[in-house]
Amino acid sequence: MNIFRLAGDMSHLVAILILLLKIWRSRSCAGISGKSQVLFALVFTTRYLDLFTSFISAYNTVMKVVFLALSYATVYLIYMRFRNSYDSENDTFRVEFLLVPVIGLSFLENYSFTPMEILWTFSIFLESVAIMPQLFMITKTGEAESITNHYLFFLGLYRALYIVNWVWRYHTEGFFDQIAVVSGVVQTIFYCDFFYLYVTRVLRGRGKMSLP
């Protein structure tokens, strides 16, 4: 554990809490892609199966349980509790276009050809593209509430901090997880355009912003 990794995890937690509290307080999930949230719940589910097989640390276990619980709570709020506000007409990204290649790749490129490892790899690859329905929705509607942008900012920050963490771990302990690093870098690139717009538009007071 290093400071970059911890800050990354905290940033991830903040992102998830921002989204959950936004939906809860406004009693609305307008502008939120339910599909992206289902994909994230699937990411956590398939990655954290090792909760049952290997213990790493109390921190690790607690965070996994928290992420799982929060992601399922978010999906519940969107599709059950506040489903009347769910903007399904604009949440039209075809997730099969993500799932099919991701499933295929996880069978081709993994650390060992076992169900657990293939599911772990699937979760890593899926996480890198799971935000695409959300970004697609923002592009389609032309704008997002500033709170949604804060959510995306912290999600992107989490990814950027993980890259710094990997650089740190590579130099201090020789750690290099190729699958995680390559897909993590790809994932972070998706946020670059958003980051630029976030800084130039949201932080300079316009509140709302649109993606080109």
Partner: peptide
């Protein structure tokens, strides 16, 4: 990479 059994990152 032989970290196949222990993924210690979240």
């Amino acid at each position: 990479a032989d970290e196949a059994s222990a993924h210690d990152e979240l």
